[in-house]
Design a protein around this nucleic acid. Structure first.
Lengths: 226, 226
DNA sequence: ACAGTAAGTGACACTCAGTGCCGCTCATCA
DNA sequence: TGATGAGCGGCACTGAGTGTCACTTACTGT
C-alpha cells in the first residue's frame, strides 16, 4: 500500500466524520457510525486516529513537521525571532491551502467544547516547538521568560489572523494581518534592544514644514531599522 | 450540608487521587480505586469532578472566579493592561497559597501527557477571560490582534514565573519574576503608544557632561512614564 | 418535638471510547 | 507459484462517564 493511498483514506475518513458531526452533532455520532459511513471498520478508524476528536485535525502532524523543518532550515546567522516568524508565515500558508477543511473545522470548534479544547492543545504543541527553538537560539542574557513569551505572542497573532479570516468567511487578508502583527513584534524587540540603548543625537534645525517632514521620516526609520 | 464541608470533601478526594496517581501511575488508577480510597462512591466522584483528569485541578474554578472578580473590580479609569496585570498577580498569589498542591501537580503534569494537556486547557480558559476583557476595554483603534496577543503574552510570563518556581522546588521569587516580565510588557506598550507617537521636541543645548546627563535621564523617563 | 421538603449520596445499569489479539487477505518479490 | 509482510476486520474486554431511583441526612415551618 503506497503512503499516498493511506493519506487519501485518512482524509476521506476525516471528511465523512466532519460532515456527520456538523449534521447530527458531535456527541450523537459514534465512532462506529463514522466507520460505517466511511466503509471501514471501527478498528481501522482508530488505526488512523488516536482518538475521536483527532478526526477533526487530520493535518496537525504534517504541519508540525513543516514548522520543524522550517526552523531547522533557517540559516545560521538568522535572528531567531525572524526564523520563528518565517516558520509561522509558512504554517499560515499551509492552513490556507486547505480552506474548506479550516472553515468546516472552525464551525465545529465553535459549537463543540471538546473540539475547541483539542484545538487549544494542538496549538500548544506548536508553541512548545517554537519555544524550545527560542530557548536554544536566543542570546543567553535575555530575560528567562522571553522564549515562552515570544512563542505565545507569535502564536496568538497567528491565531488572531487566522481566526478573523475564518470568521469573515475568507474575506480578509490573513497574511497581511500576520505580517502587520509580526512587524509589531519586531518593533517591540527592537525598542527593547537597539533603539532604547542607542545614544541620543542632537540637531538644530529651522522649524519649517520640510524639516518636520524629515524628522517624521527619521523617526519612522528609527523604528524600522536596528 | 454546608458549602465548606462540600469543599473539604472535594479537596480530600483530590488529594487521595493525586497521591494514588503519583504512586501507581495515572493510567493504572481507576476512578473506582480513587472512590474507594476516599470512602465515597464512584458516582460521587463524578459529582465533584466532571472527568478523571479534573481530579488534579480542584482549584481552577475558584481561581477563574477570582480573576473575574479582580477584573470587574478594577476602577473605571484603570489602564486595561494594568488591570489584567494586577489580576494575574492576584492569581499567582492564589497559586502560591497552595504550594503543596502546585508542586505535586507539577510532578504529575510532567509525567502524564493527558494531565499536561488538561493544564493547557485550564490556562486557555484564563486567557480567554482576560482576552475578552481586553477586547472590551482596549481603545478601539488598537490593532485587532492586540487583545489576544497581550492576553497570551501575560499568561506566558505568568506561566514562566510559576514554572521556574516549581522547577526549582520553591527556591525562586516568582512574584518578582512576574513583576519584571510585566514591566517589560508595560514598556513595550508605552513605546508603541506614547513614546513613538509623541511629537518630537527640539532643544538646543551646549554639549557638556551635565547636559548629556540630563538627556540620559530624560530618555529613561520617556521609557518609564507615559 | 414533628412532619415535610430539599439536597447529597449510593447502587445499578447502560453507552461508548479506546485497546489487545488473532486470523484473513492481498500486494510484492523471489 | 509459493512465501512474506503489511494492512484490515472482527471480537472481546476495560474503564470513563451518564441517567435513574431509592435512601438518608439536614434544614424548614408549625
Amino acid at each position: 500500500m503506497t503512503s499516498r493511498k493511506i493519506l487519501d483514506t485518512k482524509y476521506r475518513i476525516s471528511e465523512t466524520a466532519m460532515a456527520l458531526f456538523l449534521k447530527e452533532g458531535y456527541a450523537n455520532v459514534t465512532v462506529e457510525a463514522v466507520a460505517d459511513a466511511s466503509s471501514v471498520s471501527r478498528r481501522t478508524v482508530f488505526r488512523y486516529f488516536a482518538s475521536k476528536d483527532e478526526l477533526v485535525f487530520p493535518d496537525h502532524t504534517e504541519r508540525l513537521g513543516l514548522v520543524e523543518r522550517c526552523l531547522a532550515a533557517a540559516p545560521e546567522g538568522t535572528d531567531p525571532v525572524d526564523a520563528v516568524i518565517m516558520a509561522t508565515e509558512e504554517s499560515l500558508r499551509e492552513f490556507l491551502s486547505r480552506p474548506e477543511l479550516v472553515l468546516r473545522r472552525y464551525k465545529l470548534t465553535r459549537i463543540v467544547p471538546e473540539l475547541r479544547r483539542r484545538e487549544v492543545v494542538e496549538h500548544e504543541r506548536y508553541v512548545a516547538l517554537t519555544r524550545s527553538y527560542l530557548r536554544d537560539h536566543l542570546p543567553p542574557d535575555a530575560p528567562p521568560f522571553q522564549p515562552m513569551a515570544l512563542a505565545a505572542l507569535i502564536d496568538a497573532i497567528h491565531r488572531s489572523a487566522l481566526g478573523n479570516w475564518v470568521r469573515e468567511g475568507g474575506a480578509t487578508d490573513p497574511e497581511a494581518e500576520l505580517a502587520a502583527g509580526m512587524e509589531w513584534v519586531r518593533r517591540m524587540m527592537m525598542h527593547q534592544s537597539a533603539f532604547s540603548s542607542a545614544p541620543l543625537l542632537l540637531a538644530v534645525l529651522p522649524d519649517t514644514p520640510q524639516t518636520r517632514q524629515v524628522l517624521t521620516s527619521l523617526k519612522a526609520a528609527g523604528q524600522e531599522l536596528p
